[in-house]
Design a protein around this nucleic acid. Structure first.
Length: 494
RNA sequence: GGUCCUUUGGCCGAGUGGCUAGGCAAAGCUCUGCAAAAGCUUCUACAGCGGUUCGAAUCCGCUAGGGACCUCCA
């Protein structure tokens, strides 16, 4: 079975066939680094991280480009006011590049905590000013843009005569025009839908560069076109981003590329859905954003407690990337417990070894069905939720092996090996989950071994007062002791 | 106003025509010195109304609720 991906452009799932066999070019719109990323932003990057990991798992050599927007991203996309970086810089008396540096580092820290792999190229907008200028020149030369006093606008009306401007989100130009709000009448743009490719800077503007049209800075949309073209070429396999980018940003990207190269950039457009809070989208402008830090420390009014990065990652994997996901304390709690159960079973599985006995054909078939189902589900537009459901079906089997309720030999050595292998590959390599920082400190671990030894002795002497004291006091400091069926004891951090 | 999406059990969420996930919570049982963990079992839903069909959560229509985009936002 081959991989099928939902393409926003065609509004259906398509069999994925890379332009060049064995290679995948993927571009994902990255963050604008003028403030902390919130959890909604993280969802997109985590989703694409899993997609990237899965493509690699399938054996593709992937060039994964995710940009950092660190310049020229205007609010309202109009030639007034400063860009976000300058605004923030004045407020805090910092250099714009200090802002950029601070939030870029913060972003990387967060991505690291979520165990996402870094993209293979992470280009910045400020590092590609000349590419953006030349692309603007090309569009101008091709007649799809015009200059008004040092600012270059993309001519949507002209473009619409030849191409369908609203193709990505299936909108007609008339509808788009109708929906556009009146900008006050004193606009210098010819058409209401026209957007800036290059913006003239006022003298006091902090970030500006020389161009054929004077000092200025790039419009937002042009950076992704220029950078995707530079690293992935005129045409590449996948372009992704949050759903909120489709109607404007990605629509404009397509228009720019068509106007410049006469080609649409990506064969498949992927959009991840929004993270919501109480049914409303989490966003910076609404101020309902959760910061990763608030989550990890539990310092948010809507949270009862702290949740680990892996809990959050798992929480996101339980939902399909194209569905909205509602964020709540209750849902996180459920994920935390679910992940623990799954992870404990996974660790148990690692320790088990196969010994042959009579094979139970029914169990054998069941295990094979679920284990082989991982690939099948992922091939169906990256259905991570389905894979997890299959894994949970396998959890009781693993635990029964451990407790001797089912003989491991009830499945063949071959199936057992596949079982172990697929669980490991999927949980760690594809889903990017890892053990949450246990108390992996060697000395502490030795202390616990000592306590366990003492408790075993007490139990053997039926000195339950002592054995209970050890267990209860450890529980108070958050360490759980479990008596195993075979008389052994294990411990875990709550 | 326009475009589009969505409504699944106490909660979170898969699922696009028959095989009707899964997690969490809850209840019972087993195991256990007790507990925890684990195992087994129970709870089995698809907003409402109508239509298509041998058969619908799944397709179509209407009604009602929710949401997104059209303006910076992943």
């Amino acid at each position: 079975m081959s991989l099928e991906i939902y393409n926003t452009l065609t509004r259906k799932k398509e069999i994925f066939k890379p332009l060049e066999e064995g290679y995948v070019g993927m571009y994902v719109c990255g963050p604008t680094v003028y403030s902390d990323v919130h959890l909604g932003n993280c969802r997109t990057f985590i989703s694409f991280d899993v997609i990237y990991r899965y493509l690699r798992h399938l054996g593709y050599k992937v060039r994964y480009v995710r940009n950092i927007t660190d310049a020229g991203h205007l609010e309202g996309d109009r030639d007034e006011g400063d860009d976000k970086f300058s605004k923030k810089a004045r407020l805090e008396q910092l250099e714009p590049m200090e802002i950029v540096q601070r939030y870029t580092l913060g972003f990387h820290d967060v991505m690291h905590l979520f165990n996402t792999l870094p993209p293979t190229i992470e280009p910045t907008a400020t590092g590609h000013i000349s590419e953006q200028i030349s692309m603007t020149q090309e569009i101008l030369a091709n007649g799809y843009a015009y200059e008004v006093d040092g600012t270059i606008y993309f001519d949507v009306e002209k473009y619409s005569k030849e191409k369908s401007y609203g193709i990505l989100t299936n909108r007609k130009l008339e509808d788009l025009l109708e929906g556009t709000r009146d900008l006050g009448g004193q606009d210098e743009k010819r058409g209401r839908l026209d957007f800036a490719l290059w913006i003239k800077a006022k003298p006091e503007h902090l970030m500006q560069w020389p161009s054929p049209w004077g000092m200025g800075f790039p419009g937002w949309h042009i950076e992704c076109s220029a950078m995707s073209n530079k690293y992935l070429g005129k045409r590449f396999d996948l372009h992704g981003g949050g759903m909120d980018l489709a109607a404007t940003h990605h629509t404009n990207e397509i228009a720019q590329n068509e106007a410049c190269f006469k080609e649409s950039p990506a064969q498949i457009w992927m959009h991840t859905n929004m993270l919501t809070v109480n049914g409303t989208r989490m966003s910076k402008s609404l101020g309902n954003g959760f910061l990763p830090h608030e989550l990890f420390t539990g310092s948010h009014p809507l949270l009862d407690k702290a949740y680990s990065p892996m809990t959050v990652r798992f929480f996101m994997l339980q939902t399909h990337y194209r569905s909205t996901l509602d964020f709540s304390n209750e849902a996180l709690q459920a994920s935390e417990k679910g992940l623990k159960r799954l992870w404990d079973a996974f660790e148990t599985l690692q320790k088990l070894t196969h010994t042959s006995s009579e094979v139970d054909a029914e169990l054998e078939e069941k295990v094979l069905k679920f284990v082989n189902g991982f690939d099948e589900s992922m091939n169906d537009d990256f259905n991570t939720a389905k894979v997890l459901a299959n894994m949970f079906e396998l959890v009781p089997i693993i635990n029964s092996f451990k407790d001797g309720l089912i003989q491991i030999g009830a499945i063949t050595a071959e199936t057992f090996k596949l079982f172990k292998n697929n669980m490991t590959v999927y949980l760690t390599d594809v889903f990017g989950l890892k053990a949450d920082a246990k108390v992996n400190n060697g000395k502490l671990s030795n202390v616990l071994d000592l306590l366990i030894e003492m408790r075993k002795e007490a139990k053997a002497k039926k000195d339950f007062a002592t054995s209970d004291k050890i267990r209860n006091q450890l529980k108070e400091i958050g360490i759980l002791l479990k008596d195993e069926k075979n008389g052994e004891m294990s411990w875990g951090v709550e």
